[in-house]
Structure formats: C-alpha cells, structure tokens
C-alpha cells in the first residue's frame, strides 16, 4: 500500500508542468493623415450673384495618434480668387472664408502665399475625428458689384494637419 502511494506521488511529481515566457515589443510611431474625399476635390460655389455670398460645403478626414491642428492656405498671393480672363487677371476684392462644423472652428480668412497659414482648428485630441467620420467645412465668398464677371474664378486651398 505504501509502495503504491509512493509510486503515485512520484508520478505526480514527474508530470507537474513546464513553463516558459517571451517578451513582445512594438514601437508605434507618431502618425497623422489627412484626406480630402474625391467628391470634395473640386467644389463649385453656388448662389454667386452681386452683393451676396456664394458658398460650397466640403469635408476632410483626419487620422492622427497625437494632438493636431488644421492649417489653411490659399494658392494666390493674396488668398483671393482669381479669374481666367482680363489683363491683369481679375481678382475678387473680398477674401474667402472657411469654417468647420463638429468640431466648430472659424470663420477664418484664407490667407495667400504672402502670409502665414491660418489655423482653423486647434489642439484636436487623437482619435476624436478619426476613422470614417468627416469634418464638414464650408467655404464662403462675397461677390461685390465691383467684381468683374468671370466664368472661371479659382482658388486652390491647402489644408494641412499638423501635430501640436
């Protein structure tokens, strides 16, 4: 009986277990991405008539894993829209403004290449507007009676997400 007990104890001791472990490492870099959905790459201002505002809605998608801000800059020296006819080319007298919804920001006058970029959104937390959510933007442009009629006023606006 004692021998059987000892044998059982010996069996249990031999088959106890074995353990091992490993370390897993990962290095996550700082990242920020901005994308203008294709449907917003070319916008057409509506309701463009004298003494009124033409406007267009747009949107951007930003993904970031650190706090970020959104800068805007226009492609012309003054930031104003420029036509395609006339010598010199016609330029609207009023600047274009931009504002954002959710998160609310602006309105901000779009600066030109002669000025520093304007900050539309500041210190947005990482992940707050990431993924499929789109930040809505609205562009507004005042047309005065002193602005020459032109079928092709243009301005390219650069939107830049920068880490803060």
């Amino acid at each position: 009986m004692m021998a059987l007990l000892l044998a059982a104890i010996s069996f249990l001791a031999a088959a106890v277990e074995d353990r091992d472990s490993t370390n897993v490492y990962a290095s996550l870099p700082a990242q920020i991405e901005i994308q203008v959905p294709s449907q917003y790459e070319n916008l057409q201002l509506t309701n463009c008539s004298p003494s009124s505002y033409g406007s267009a809605t747009s949107g951007i998608e930003v993904r970031s894993n650190l706090n970020w801000s959104l800068d805007v800059a226009g492609s012309t020296a003054t930031g104003h829209m420029v036509g395609s006819t006339g010598t010199p080319l016609h330029e609207l007298h009023s600047p274009m403004t931009i504002r954002s919804l959710n998160p609310a920001g602006g309105p901000v006058t779009i600066p030109g290449t002669d000025s520093s970029p304007a900050m539309l959104l500041t210190n947005i937390a990482p992940g707050d507007y990431s993924g499929s959510s789109t930040i809505s933007l609205t562009f507004e442009q005042f047309f005065g009676w002193n602005d020459y009629a032109d079928d092709d006023y243009r301005l390219t606006v650069t939107l830049t997400a920068v880490p803060t």
Partner: peptide, 13 residues
Amino acid sequence: WKDVPSDYKMRIS
C-alpha cells in the same frame, strides 16, 4: 488611432 505613439512591451507566459 487613440494609442499614444511610444514603445510598448508585454511578457507572455
């Protein structure tokens, strides 16, 4: 995207 950029570690047993 909410994960903070940094070095991470875990020990697996």
